[in-house]
Every structure is written in structure tokens, then in C-alpha cells.
Amino acid sequence: MDRAVTDDLLAELADVVLRISREIDPSGALAIDIVPLTGTEALVMRWVDRNPGSTPSAAAGATALKRSNLSVALGSLVAKGMVERRPDPDDARTVRLFSTALAEQSIERLHAHWAGMLRQALGDDDRDVVATFATLTRIDERLHDATR
């Protein structure tokens, strides 16, 4: 049975995704006014923002970072004013992580930047965006599951 989706096509898809990510990089040629983050910090910030009140242990597990690397990234995010550590009201030994107002503003600017760039690139031809999003989300989830 011949597959319509060849390994070459899948490799090209991965390459296109990487090229697009470089083009929409907020610190690239079209830098925007957001708090600059390293790749590891962005990974942790994304988790904290999407999972308010999570613990450092949960963040380490979800991001596949070693505790020491997560600790460094969290320390940097706290120093940059992006993440707030709060004691758990039920267990003072546990810390909960939350995005700050500064983080929310940066994320809002970043999302507007991305949406604007993609809208400009698509023009009036946005008919496949929903299906593309669903496919890429499914790939992301399955890749994430496969590496855990």
C-alpha cells in the first residue's frame, strides 16, 4: 500500500514549521516590545500561563526539564517580573506559580504580533486555518505524549 504522506513530505512539513517559527520570532528582525525570554524561559512561561497555580514539580514534569534547570528558569522569570511564586494556602511547604500582569501584557502583545503576521501572510485565503490548527495540535499532543 502506497502512502500519500511520504517521509519526505513529513520532513518538509517539519522544515516549514521551523521556518515559520523563525519568521514570527518576536526577537528577530521585527522585534516587538515584550520581555525577552530564552527558549527555556518561554517554555516554562507558557506552562505557567496556561496552568495557573501549578507547582514547580508539575511544571518540571510537563516541560520535561530537570528540576535544577526549571529552578534556574523560574528564578529568572521571577527576576524579570513574569512569574509570581505564592505559598499554597493549604500547605505552606508548597509553592504555586502564577503569571504576573507584566507577563499577561507581554503575552497579549506576542499573540497580537503572531496573529498580525499570520493574517498578513494569509491575506484573504484563510480557509484551511482551522484544519491546519487541528492537525498541528494533534501532532503537538502526540509528540508530547511520546516523549514522556
Rank of each mutant, 00 (worst) to 15 (best):
1 M>Y: 11
5 V>T: 12
6 T>Y: 04
7 D>A: 15
7 D>S: 15
8 D>S: 11
8 D>A: 14
9 L>R: 13
10 L>E: 09
15 D>L: 04
15 D>K: 04
20 I>W: 05
20 I>G: 00
24 I>V: 14
25 D>A: 03
25 D>C: 05
25 D>E: 08
25 D>N: 00
26 P>S: 03
29 A>E: 14
29 A>F: 11
29 A>C: 07
33 D>E: 13
33 D>A: 05
33 D>F: 12
35 V>I: 13
35 V>M: 11
36 P>L: 05
38 T>Y: 08
40 T>E: 00
41 E>M: 04
41 E>I: 04
42 A>H: 02
45 M>R: 01
46 R>T: 03
49 D>M: 02
50 R>P: 02
50 R>F: 07
52 P>W: 01
53 G>S: 13
54 S>K: 09
55 T>A: 07
56 P>R: 00
56 P>D: 10
59 A>N: 02
59 A>S: 10
60 A>S: 14
60 A>K: 07
61 G>K: 08
62 A>S: 15
63 T>N: 02
64 A>F: 05
65 L>C: 03
65 L>D: 07
66 K>V: 01
67 R>M: 12
70 L>D: 08
73 A>S: 03
73 A>Q: 07
74 L>P: 12
75 G>W: 02
75 G>K: 05
76 S>N: 03
76 S>R: 05
77 L>V: 03
77 L>A: 08
78 V>H: 08
79 A>Y: 06
79 A>L: 03
80 K>Y: 02
80 K>E: 00
83 V>N: 01
83 V>M: 04
84 E>K: 01
87 P>T: 08
90 D>F: 15
91 D>F: 07
94 T>P: 13
97 L>M: 05
100 T>E: 05
100 T>F: 03
100 T>W: 05
101 A>M: 10
103 A>Y: 02
104 E>T: 05
105 Q>L: 12
107 I>Y: 00
107 I>N: 00
107 I>S: 00
110 L>R: 08
111 H>S: 13
112 A>N: 14
112 A>E: 13
114 W>L: 10
115 A>C: 13
115 A>F: 14
116 G>T: 15
116 G>R: 14
117 M>Q: 12
120 Q>L: 15
121 A>G: 13
122 L>F: 15
123 G>D: 13
128 D>Y: 11
132 T>F: 07
133 F>E: 02
137 T>W: 00
137 T>M: 03
138 R>Q: 14
141 E>A: 14
145 D>N: 14
145 D>F: 13
